[in-house]
Write a protein that binds this DNA or RNA. Structure first.
Lengths: 228, 228
DNA sequence: CGTATTTTTGAAGCGATTCAATGGACGTGG
DNA sequence: CCACGTCCATTGAATCGCTTCAAAAATACG
């Protein structure tokens, strides 16, 4: 409960309200690779990630996959459930063992009506999400691939970065393909881009793992500054 | 008040609640070209458009402009004001004479806490917005320019389309530059693309105006179907 | 140790951008 | 009402960034 009270969407709730929130929740665990929700299924549950990582992705009618974002502990997914029984627009899949709290759409609706603070926090959370997507859309429309990949890595580092001896490790199983699907390019181009940075000592990479050795240099790439 | 009660964010409120909402609002008018909010200014007001059209755009550090979306009557903008005094991430500018209701961030916060239904509706509205941006991000990452422009036009038609004798007029002053900034390309490419469609009889265009003559054919382009 | 998955690398080709220059539409003021 | 300046749109030609496809190398896993 202490952990839950620190989560953005439940900030400012008193103990009894938190107890009520928790009483309505069920615990949902998933193993690596297992899906919480599948694109196209009717949305009836809303989730709040407690631990692990979840990848949100969308498949196009042509079968191409696009990675929307990674969900970190404390963030929600499946919000569409509170709108009624629309289909989920994305697939949410655990990339490592994960634990989440889940509410039915109806139950969460009732919670919001009884505790307006949740609605307020939820709007704040979603507004922030909108802002992030706006930023990415701007990037997608104006930046070259190298900058987009740099921005993608920096976003991941902020969200899932772990300080290690050499720099900042992005603590996720992250393939070249994933990065390509996040930044709207191909795994080939990502591979070449990372290879270039590795040569310049900016990052070090292994299979499904990237470590930022000189984050400031990557910021310079992302902002298109002359290299320092 | 009747008009306000039909707006998504105030759905389900009773008369006294609506009166309270309106009492806290101020009316803000803008002429064509005038800005409601400017990117970078501290966000202290939240708006609900009553009539007219508003364009949300973002300027990159390099000075390029990106058009995020057009706001139609009944839609909100400036939501970031309820998060505290963060800067507005976008500029909101009337493209034709507009009227909007405005609340201070604090006042709207209080309204949400007194009438939780507003928070619920607001979350629904924002969740829908997130979904739209996700779709556009997917398009930006996977589709070629022609399809993106087709999708952009169809989105505008859905939102601001008006049936006329020849087809569906997009009832907005819409330059090639605007379309380019919405779809992440250049005005040159948009010009060539529209010229091609005009030749095929799919659209008809004039200065800052586009009419869809065969919407279904444009859908075919957007979905990359063999032309019918 | 063999198989599957991920990553690297090369070469060819194309879609889209860039830049420059022209053409057309609109509004304003004489 | 015509002439002007401004803004918007078109068009052509050159260039480039990125994709595409093929093939091989590296790494993980049973």
């Amino acid at each position: 409960m202490a952990a839950v009270s620190r989560m953005g969407i439940f900030l400012g709730l008193d103990a009894s309200a938190l107890a009520e929130v928790l009483a309505a929740a069920t615990l949902a665990t998933a193993q690596a690779g297992e899906a919480y929700v599948c694109q196209g299924d009717p949305a009836h549950r809303f989730y709040l990630l407690v631990s692990g990582r979840v990848r949100l992705s969308q498949v196009t009618p042509e079968g191409q996959q696009v990675v929307m974002r990674f969900i970190a502990p404390g963030e929600e997914f499946g919000i569409v459930a509170i709108l009624g029984r629309l289909p989920y627009p994305v697939t949410a899949e655990a990339v490592e063992p994960a634990v989440a709290l889940a509410w039915s759409g109806e139950a969460f609706n009732r919670l919001i009506l009884r505790h307006p603070q949740i609605g307020l926090n939820g709007m704040a959370m979603l507004a922030e999400r909108v802002r992030e997507f706006q930023d990415r859309l701007r990037e997608a429309g104006t930046q070259r691939v190298e900058r987009r990949v740099a921005n993608g890595l920096l976003r991941l580092a902020r969200q899932a970065g772990r300080s290690v001896a050499e720099g900042v490790l992005i603590d996720l199983p992250l393939s070249r393909q994933d990065l390509a699907e996040m930044t709207g390019t191909t795994l080939f181009t990502v591979s070449r881009t990372l290879a270039g940075w590795e040569e310049r000592g900016i990052i070090s990479s292994a299979r499904k793992r990237v470590t930022l050795l000189q984050p400031h240099a990557l910021v310079a790439v992302a902002e298109d500054l002359p290299e320092g």
